[in-house]
Amino acid sequence: MSDLSVVGLRKAFGNHVVLSGFDLSVAHGECVVLIGASGSGKSTVLRCVNLLETVDDGVIRLGGDDVTDPRADPDAVRARMGIVFQSYNLFPHLRVLDNITLAPVRVHGVARAAAERAAREMLDRVGLADKASARPDELSGGQQQRVAIARALVNSPELMLLDEVTSALDPELVGEVLELLVDLKRDGMTMLLATHEMAFAKQVADRVCFLHGGRVHEEGPPSELLVAPREDRTRQFLSRFVSL
């Protein structure tokens, strides 16, 4: 039973077709990494799954429910997933703690005291217990990104979507975030993430998907796809990453 299944997804902006006939499935507890050239549609896939874009065609199922059905309540669907963006998108007018408790209190009807307790536990988990009352702009990039992950995690999502969560960070901070994701994976979180960092993909992925021409061009476990790709296009793309 796969947690997320995408079948025949099509998405165009104007007459620029980004995804067409895109298929992907992510099993429960699996971590799938999307790689591909800039503009290949990695972010678009994640945004479509999160219903931040309306799809032109195709079906997206989460735990068996068709979330692209216009009769489904998109807010309820989004509440089942967590998404973290490259640019963190913390709410600058709210303290770190209030950034994290906003959705539990307003969407999930959790009592404020309980939500704050959960938020503090989550902050502790991402190593930022002492930053609860800081404003987002008082934090470093890596700290902001960890808060954004905590904000998504506190809702106990069925699926985490992560879009280049480390691309604004220096290598050491990448390590911090990576550690956190490995941890999450160990806890059985289902994850779909996009990245440009092959080392990162190698460490967390159960499966790597290379996006090209609007669909998954080649996929496989990182030990195969990243090391010995079968397709020319994949090899060409990977050849730019020397450090493998």
């Binding site: 945004r47 931040l52 509440a79 997933m81 998108n89 709410f91 600058p92 959705a103 969407v107 809702n155």
Partner: peptide
Amino acid sequence: PSQRAAARSLGLTHVQTLRFVVIPQ
């Protein structure tokens, strides 16, 4: 717009997004 996207992705409705995220800012 990324602020709206972030709020909606957390499950906040359009009205909640306005009230708690957009209008205060």
